[in-house]
Design a protein around this nucleic acid. Structure first.
Length: 278
DNA sequence: TCCTTATGTACAA
DNA sequence: TGTACCTAAGGAC
């Protein structure tokens, strides 16, 4: 599930449901038992996201061991299950369970994260300093990303996946935004024009905001939807309507050329060789 | 029931 | 570049 939009949506949902309330925290699986015990019963001040990193605020006592934040990264397959009412008996490996004891009762179970740790304000700043601008954050400066991209011989497809360059973009948004701007994924960053980058950034802001709203990734323009083009809708576990992501070998919605795939930056890249030249 | 794959990243060599 | 992390879902059998 997790690109940046998922994390921002989680921050909004968790903040709304648990924010300002005392929260019971536990680690049924045990791997976060010490951390959960430290925050258990404390009030969640709020939830925030930067790129794919989620921060749950539990203002500390000043003792660094108490922490100020739970820092969560879902990795490739981590995820939350949220529900209302008393939490059910734990099934499987629940790293972190949050629950309220007063009405309205809600709970959230975290499974399979690559990171779930207690950190201080300073630790949180350090995480933020390793990340590039996040299209979903109001404080983001796309010029910082441009400074990296415009000097780099690395392909734009690899740069978009580098969280130090842009935070929050993952394999789906990478493939889709490059398609939408007719950019060859193998083009070196330094060969992009500033206007192209500005357009890509503006598009990411819009696409990812919609991703937060809908809790899924849709990237096809209105004139290319299944209804508009009289084609069957995509049925895939990641949910949304896309141009090229995981469509290898299938015809491009725009030109009919077969969508190609190749490994790049440790992930499978997808693109249309006819639409994405230059 | 087993095998593969996945919206991610850190680390070793 | 390869491997480990460690979860769930889908497809092959």
């Amino acid at each position: 599930m997790p690109e940046g939009h998922t994390i921002h949506r989680l921050a909004a949902d968790l903040g709304e449901r648990f924010g300002g309330r005392p929260v019971r925290a536990s680690s049924p699986q045990g791997r976060f038992a010490a951390g959960a015990a430290r925050v258990d019963g404390r009030t969640l001040s709020g939830a925030d996201a930067h790129g794919k990193h989620l921060f749950l605020g539990f203002p500390g006592s000043g003792d660094p061991a108490d922490g100020d934040w739970i820092h969560i990264h879902l990795g490739l397959y981590g995820g939350f299950t949220q529900g209302a009412g008393p939490p059910p008996a734990p099934v499987g490996q629940i790293r972190l369970r949050l629950a309220t004891e007063e009405a309205p009762r809600v709970y959230a179970d975290l499974r399979g994260p690559s990171t779930c740790e207690l950190i201080t304000d300073e630790g949180r700043r350090a995480v933020g300093e390793r990340l590039g601008p996040d299209p979903l954050r109001a404080d983001a400066d796309p010029g910082r990303a441009w400074a990296r991209i415009s000097r780099s011989r690395t392909t734009i497809a690899a740069l978009l996946m580098d969280q130090k360059v842009v935070a929050g973009v993952g394999n789906v948004y990478r493939a889709e935004v490059l398609f939408r701007h007719n950019i060859d994924p193998y083009r070196p960053g330094k060969d992009l024009a500033r206007a192209e980058w500005d357009a890509v950034w503006a598009d990411l802001v819009e696409l990812m905001r919609e991703g937060v709203r809908n809790n899924r990734i849709d990237t096809v323009r209105p004139e290319h939807t299944p209804e508009a083009m009289n084609r069957p809708p995509r049925v895939d576990d990641h949910g949304g309507e896309v141009y090229v992501y995981r469509r290898a070998g299938m015809p491009c919605h725009l030109c009919g050329e077969r969508v190609r795939t190749a490994p790049l930056a440790a992930r499978n890249l997808f693109w249309c060789p006819a639409c994405q030249k230059g």
